[in-house]
Amino acid sequence: MKLIIGGYAQGKLKYAIEKYGLDLRLVWDGELPGDGEIRNAETEFVKERASDGNNINAKGVKMKNSIIAVNHFHNWIKRSLSEGGCPEEEISRFLDRYQSCIIISDEIGNGIIPVEKFEREYRERTGRILVKLAGQAEEVERVICGIGQKIK
């Protein structure tokens, strides 16, 4: 798994698309896809690619393989917490199955501690989940002003 982090509106997704040749059909936005969803999207993707007759995606990057990515990962954590879920367990199960995915998340901990309890918990748990993912990741990149710095 590769982890890409950075502040809001720093060009993380664009960076990932250009660097890893992500195809938006295999990028989930603020949600962790289930096995069925991933299978369907992959089948569609392979079919379309074959019918295109080339391996070029919209950005002109040559597609080597179909990488699964989750963008706005922090939004998924927030929703999971608000529904009383346990994002720590869910993401760990997801990564057991999809070890070569890319996770893209905002860094949200660099500010004043929020007054509302839920917001405080969301920040704290998102931070700790990202620390854990960074520990497992084969690579961690921090994107600022559209530029990626490899920090692990």
Binding site: G109, N110, G111, R123, E124, R125, G127, R128, L130, V131
Partner: peptide, 8 residues
């Protein structure tokens, strides 16, 4: 230095 939950 670090943010909240950064592991600092």
């Amino acid at each position: 230095l670090g943010g909240s939950g950064s592991g600092k």
